[in-house]
Simulated scan of single mutants.
Amino acid sequence: MYEASEWARNGDTIHRTVVAPDFRTAIAIVNDIAEQAEALNHHPDIDIRWRTLHLALTTHDAGGLTDLDYKLAARIDGIVADHQT
């Protein structure tokens, strides 16, 4: 199971907040997350507030967290890291 300090568990969901340097970068991160989510057929809840992204993952069909949530979380971490350089 993948775990990272950026993600916090709350019940059957893991959450992460990302603050991008600007709105354009925040949207680029969301677009990259969308590509990975489509590839995995697993879609996060994303709340966009200017340059702040609130992300939540759970597997609704399974009634909680699965390996798929942690797999997408790892990919999201990579995307965020790529946009910070």
Score class of each variant (00 low, 15 high):
residue 1 M to Y: 09
residue 2 Y to Q: 02
residue 4 A to T: 11
residue 4 A to N: 15
residue 4 A to L: 02
residue 4 A to F: 12
residue 6 E to N: 14
residue 6 E to D: 11
residue 7 W to S: 09
residue 7 W to D: 06
residue 7 W to H: 06
residue 7 W to E: 03
residue 8 A to M: 13
residue 8 A to R: 15
residue 9 R to L: 02
residue 9 R to T: 01
residue 11 G to L: 07
residue 12 D to R: 04
residue 12 D to K: 06
residue 14 I to L: 11
residue 14 I to C: 10
residue 14 I to E: 02
residue 15 H to D: 08
residue 15 H to L: 08
residue 15 H to V: 05
residue 19 V to D: 12
residue 21 P to R: 15
residue 21 P to T: 12
residue 21 P to L: 10
residue 21 P to S: 14
residue 22 D to S: 08
residue 23 F to W: 11
residue 23 F to G: 06
residue 23 F to K: 09
residue 24 R to G: 14
residue 25 T to M: 08
residue 25 T to F: 02
residue 26 A to C: 07
residue 26 A to E: 09
residue 27 I to S: 05
residue 28 A to G: 03
residue 28 A to L: 12
residue 28 A to P: 06
residue 29 I to Q: 09
residue 29 I to C: 09
residue 31 N to I: 03
residue 32 D to M: 04
residue 32 D to K: 09
residue 33 I to G: 12
residue 34 A to K: 02
residue 34 A to V: 09
residue 34 A to Q: 07
residue 35 E to R: 12
residue 35 E to V: 13
residue 35 E to D: 11
residue 35 E to N: 11
residue 36 Q to F: 08
residue 36 Q to S: 13
residue 37 A to P: 01
residue 37 A to Y: 03
residue 37 A to Q: 04
residue 38 E to R: 10
residue 39 A to T: 09
residue 40 L to N: 13
residue 41 N to Q: 14
residue 41 N to V: 12
residue 41 N to S: 14
residue 41 N to F: 08
residue 42 H to K: 00
residue 42 H to S: 03
residue 43 H to L: 04
residue 44 P to E: 10
residue 46 I to Y: 11
residue 46 I to M: 06
residue 47 D to W: 02
residue 48 I to R: 07
residue 48 I to Q: 10
residue 49 R to F: 08
residue 50 W to V: 12
residue 50 W to C: 06
residue 51 R to T: 07
residue 51 R to V: 04
residue 51 R to H: 07
residue 52 T to E: 11
residue 52 T to S: 07
residue 53 L to T: 01
residue 54 H to K: 13
residue 54 H to G: 14
residue 55 L to C: 03
residue 55 L to E: 00
residue 56 A to N: 05
residue 57 L to V: 05
residue 57 L to H: 00
residue 58 T to E: 06
residue 58 T to N: 12
residue 58 T to F: 01
residue 59 T to V: 06
residue 60 H to N: 03
residue 60 H to D: 05
residue 60 H to I: 13
residue 60 H to T: 12
residue 61 D to H: 07
residue 62 A to N: 06
residue 62 A to Q: 05
residue 62 A to M: 00
residue 63 G to L: 03
residue 63 G to H: 07
residue 64 G to M: 07
residue 64 G to V: 12
residue 65 L to K: 04
residue 65 L to M: 09
residue 66 T to D: 10
residue 66 T to H: 10
residue 67 D to H: 01
residue 67 D to I: 04
residue 68 L to K: 14
residue 68 L to S: 14
residue 69 D to L: 06
residue 70 Y to P: 05
residue 71 K to L: 14
residue 72 L to G: 09
residue 73 A to I: 03
residue 74 A to D: 08
residue 74 A to K: 14
residue 75 R to C: 11
residue 75 R to Y: 07
residue 76 I to S: 04
residue 76 I to V: 05
residue 76 I to A: 01
residue 77 D to Q: 06
residue 78 G to Q: 04
residue 81 A to M: 00
residue 81 A to D: 15
residue 82 D to V: 06
residue 83 H to E: 03
residue 83 H to Y: 01
residue 84 Q to T: 07
residue 85 T to I: 13
residue 85 T to K: 15
